[in-house]
């Protein structure tokens, strides 16, 4: 009972909710970059934290060697199932021997192939997410390669006559307004830098992966800190400014701690939007209060809770 990787795509990894409770040991969280699309895929299959395949820009070709049910969410990779277009954002029954071909994402960067009961790779420190640098978790601790055989369990369709409108949850655009709260060193940046940070359209550079996004612009952010900072916790969405003056946004595979000044923090609710950007995307920032950020997140989660309730 397996899935065979015929073509791996550009960069496909096994991911789930992430690896929590071990950051104090220097172990990174990982997990889906676009948690919203990932979660919806899980809810469509009526499960919570199954290991899914995260695909990036160029999708894989997979052969299912057993009957199962899948749900494809995230960016549109124009999936083809046995020669026919395969619908997204709904459960899709799969017959043994089926071939799923994913093409290239025109808009958006990451898609999720959720499988009923999840990909059956071992739990490592309570998670199945791939931790590339430590070569653990996921499938053999690495990105998928041609010929890999992923264990799954067979499943018969229970309920699959529903679909959701993805636009109600997530939009895909390469020109985005991202909401942030002020970072811990916000006050140390010059007045000019603070203004420029909120006025300048930044461009996402080619250095944009699961660890972090390097942004570029024709401005340089400066601060008045005299000494290097002492390393402390950083997290998903931390916007730090190294000496180059060009910001870096830390993403799902960020390190647990860092020492660059933090100008701002992307709000949790906008991380999925960020996860869907391709290099050359335009990013603008707008600052909101912590309370607003938390309210927005709670609303987003209520929407998911409602979806879960509706699907059960």
């Amino acid at each position: 009972m397996t899935i065979t990787v015929i073509k791996p795509g550009l960069f496909s990894t096994v991911q789930d909710n992430g690896r929590y409770a071990s950051q104090q040991y220097g172990i990174i969280v990982s997990g889906a970059m676009d948690m919203l699309s990932y979660r919806i895929g899980q809810l469509l299959l009526q499960q919570e934290n199954g290991a899914a395949i995260e695909i990036t820009v160029v999708g894989p070709t997979l052969r299912f060697d057993v009957d199962t049910v899948i749900a494809i969410t995230g960016a549109n990779f124009s999936p083809i199932l046995n020669g026919q277009p395969c619908p997204m954002w709904r459960p899709v029954p799969i017959k043994a021997g089926s071939i799923l071909k994913c093409a290239t994402a025109q808009v958006g960067a990451r898609g999720y192939i959720a499988v009923k009961h999840g990909i059956q790779v071992p739990l490592v420190l309570e998670s199945r997410s791939t931790y590339l640098r430590a070569k653990l978790g996921g499938f053999n601790g690495r990105a998928l390669q041609k010929g890999d055989v992923l264990p799954i369990t067979s499943s018969n369709i229970v309920k699959s006559n529903y679909f959701i409108h993805s636009e109600d949850f997530i939009s895909f655009s390469n020109d985005v307004m991202i909401r942030v709260t002020v970072g811990t060193e916000w006050a140390s940046f010059t007045e000019e830098s603070k203004q420029l940070f909120l006025l300048t359209p930044f461009q996402l550079s080619k250095d944009a992966d699961r660890m972090g996004y390097r942004l570029q612009s024709d401005i340089c952010l400066t601060h008045s800190l005299q000494k290097d900072l002492i390393s402390e916790a950083v997290t998903f969405g931390t916007i730090q400014v190294p000496p180059s003056g060009q910001p870096i946004i830390l993403m799902a595979d960020r390190q647990t701690t860092g020492g660059y000044p933090k100008i701002a923090q992307v709000i949790q609710a906008d991380l999925p939007k960020l996860a869907q950007l391709q290099p050359m995307a335009t990013i603008r920032f707008t600052v909101i209060s912590l309370e607003q950020a938390q309210e927005i997140y709670i609303k987003q989660q209520q929407q998911l809770a409602l979806l879960k309730f509706t699907l059960h």
């Binding site: 811990t184 402390e232 916790a233 997290t235 969405g237 923090q265 709000i267 949790q268 938390q294 997140y297």
Partner: peptide, 10 residues
Amino acid sequence: FKPLNDCALL
């Protein structure tokens, strides 16, 4: 105390 972001504090 200070917020790190909307779901973590220092």
